[in-house]
């Protein structure tokens, strides 16, 4: 395990594309999470609301709801986690376009080791993102919550764990596309196309089936946070993490890793 990580880290340590993209991803993650409140306030203030309805001030950065709010934004399938998927796709398709996977295997790496090495990098990226969220969440929470207890701070922190899981499954999906298509442009195009198409495909499925499509299943882990504004409008959202959603996501994770392994095992490189 350590040996594989050492090998993978050597491959990316001086790979500029990787660091530029990863750096920008983390930076934009922090910026967006930090300016979320201002963004929401701006929308509320500029909206034309009839005078007789008083909109309560909604703070997104209050413990413990902050964990739900931040992870929801960070894991949105249309937002920056796509960048992370693109990074994974580039790292894997590079091995095919440089044909270094061939040299790796000739030199003595097994196909399973190759897959695990890539998975280790994916886990590192997920850990990094979760860590950024933890640090950002703690900073914003302390700045914006008046009087807090340990219970309040750590309450709903399970959203961070689920966020990690969601990202892990999502990046396994990206890895599978990369191994299947082998070309960066093709794989990125396919990922984006599928991201756009899935909500449309979902419509053609029976209602209960559609939620088991891969991206949908991942996104179901963290539902839209139930803010006071929503309650005001009489809309109720799921505020907890459903066990069945976690199982569905884990099953998808295993499927993507297994399919990637099958492709590596039975195709010539």
């Amino acid at each position: 395990m350590i040996r594989l990580l050492k090998i993978e880290l050597k491959k990316i340590l001086t790979y500029r594309t990787f660091w530029v993209l990863t750096g920008l991803y983390f930076l934009s993650l922090i910026i967006v999470l930090g300016s979320l409140q201002a963004f929401l306030d701006n929308i509320v203030n500029s909206s034309e609301v009839s005078e007789n309805i008083e909109i309560p001030h909604i703070s997104l950065y209050v413990f413990p709801d902050i964990w739900h709010n931040l992870t929801y934004i960070a894991s949105s399938r249309y937002s920056f986690k796509v960048i992370l998927a693109i990074i994974v796709i580039i790292l894997i398709t590079n091995e095919f376009s440089y044909r270094t996977i061939r040299q790796n295997i000739i030199t003595g790496l097994s196909r399973t080791e190759f897959l695990f090495a890539k998975l280790e990098i994916i886990v590192l990226l997920c850990l990094g993102s979760t860590l950024i969220l933890l640090v950002t969440g703690l900073s914003l929470g302390f700045l914006n919550t008046l009087g807090f207890s340990i219970m309040e701070i750590s309450g709903k922190m399970e959203f961070l764990i689920v966020y990690f899981l969601e990202l892990l499954v999502y990046l396994s999906f990206a890895m599978f596309i990369a191994i299947m298509l082998r070309k960066a442009g093709l794989a990125i195009g396919m990922l984006l196309l599928y991201t756009i198409m899935e909500p449309i495909i979902k419509l053609s499925f029976p209602k209960d089936f559609g939620r088991f499509l891969p991206l949908e299943a991942m996104n179901n882990l963290i539902h839209l946070p139930n803010t006071k504004l929503m309650k005001l409008m009489g809309i109720e959202f799921q505020e907890y993490i459903a066990f069945s959603d976690v199982v569905a996501a884990i099953v998808y994770g295993f499927i993507f890793v297994f399919l990637s392994w099958i492709l590596l095992r039975y195709r010539d490189v």
Partner: peptide, 16 residues
């Protein structure tokens, strides 16, 4: 394979 040293066709390395 670890006991074998080989080049197959053109050499394949990380260009960066």
């Amino acid at each position: 394979r670890k006991k074998i040293g080989a080049i197959l066709e053109t050499p394949q390395f990380y260009p960066y």
